[in-house]
């Protein structure tokens, strides 16, 4: 599965997770972050859309200390004038490199979200920064090996979306289908060959993925909806059961043994004797003569 390969293998380059309201791609982003942390990489988050507490909620506790959160949420526009938090002007390759200076060479940078940055900075400068971050600037290799970004595709015009998608090495497009997310992955290999794949994905409680190709999903669905699966009664008979059924005598069948048992009066059965009263005026022709109608 391509999605799992991307998640577990840690493909370098820019990876976009593009979602639309009301179904968020944030869980998939978290799942990729967990995978990076489990590989022992340094993860830096530029958080513009969620507070640190909200963002870290749901991550396995042992991994949290290795996540570096840079706050761009509490005061991005300097309205409060308090301690410095990241703002739109901080989204340049130099500033970000400065933030990451202390942490080794292999860094995964997470943008939460690219939509916020695109809304506050001009598109050309954002594209420029993305490119410098992924390819390195002025001949020097970039410290950022992997860039994960969340993009809300329903907030931007098609032109901006195209430009950003073209810059990315991998685009994961999410759509909601019932309980599953239908994911279209477009991945550009180093050889510039483009691979696409459509998969169905569900994110488990521990942020791991459950992935199926669409065909398998349909097959699975076919199995899943079998209504005869868990019945409380039998729909078919075994041979032995069929024999017993055939030999059973139904209550309304009038067999010889039943006839004889009805006609023969057993011992101790009651009899009716009728002795007409002398005063009775029995009219043989009209037995109902005495009825007062």
């Amino acid at each position: 599965m391509m999605l799992e390969k991307l998640r577990n293998g840690g493909t370098p380059g820019v990876l976009l997770i593009s979602d639309a309201a009301p179904h968020s791609g944030r869980e998939l982003l978290h799942s990729f972050i967990v995978a990076a942390l489990e590989r022992g990489e340094q993860v830096h988050v530029l958080g513009y859309e969620r507070s640190q507490e909200d963002f870290l909620l749901g991550f396995p506790a042992p991994l949290v200390p290795r996540l570096n959160f840079h706050d761009g949420y509490s005061d991005p526009l300097q309205w409060l004038g308090g301690p410095h938090s990241l703002g739109p002007s901080d989204f340049t390759a130099e500033r970000i490199e400065a933030l990451l200076r202390d942490s080794g060479s292999a860094v995964t940078l997470v943008l939460d979200s690219l939509s916020w940055i695109l809304a506050h900075s001009p598109l050309p400068s954002v594209c420029h920064t993305l490119r410098e971050l992924s390819r390195g600037q002025k001949g020097t290799a970039s410290t950022v090996t992997r860039l994960l970004a969340l993009l809300h595709k329903d907030l931007h015009d098609p032109g901006a979306l195209r430009s950003v998608n073209l810059l990315a090495d991998t685009v994961i497009n999410m759509e909601r289908r019932g309980d599953w997310d239908r994911v279209t992955v477009t991945h550009r290999k180093k050889s510039r060959k483009v691979e696409t794949s459509e998969e169905m994905v569900r994110i488990r409680g521990d942020l791991s993925l459950e992935v199926f190709r669409e065909k398998e999903m349909e097959q699975r669905k076919g199995q899943e909806v079998d209504p005869t699966a868990n019945l409380t009664f039998n729909l078919r008979l075994s041979e032995a059961e069929r024999e017993v059924k055939d030999s059973a005598i139904l209550p309304f069948t009038f067999s010889d043994s039943k006839k004889s048992s009805l006609l023969q009066s057993g011992p101790g059965s009651a009899r009716v004797y009728y002795d007409p009263d002398p005063a009775d005026d029995v009219d043989e022709e009209d037995p109902d003569d005495d009825l007062d109608v």
């Binding site: 009301p22 179904h23 944030r26 909200d54 019932g178 409680g205």
Partner: peptide
């Protein structure tokens, strides 16, 4: 009612309205 479109952790996979 759309619930927990962003709330993390507890109720995964319940984003159907």
């Amino acid at each position: 009612i759309f619930r927990g479109a962003v709330s993390s952790g507890k109720k995964r996979g319940q984003t159907q309205p």
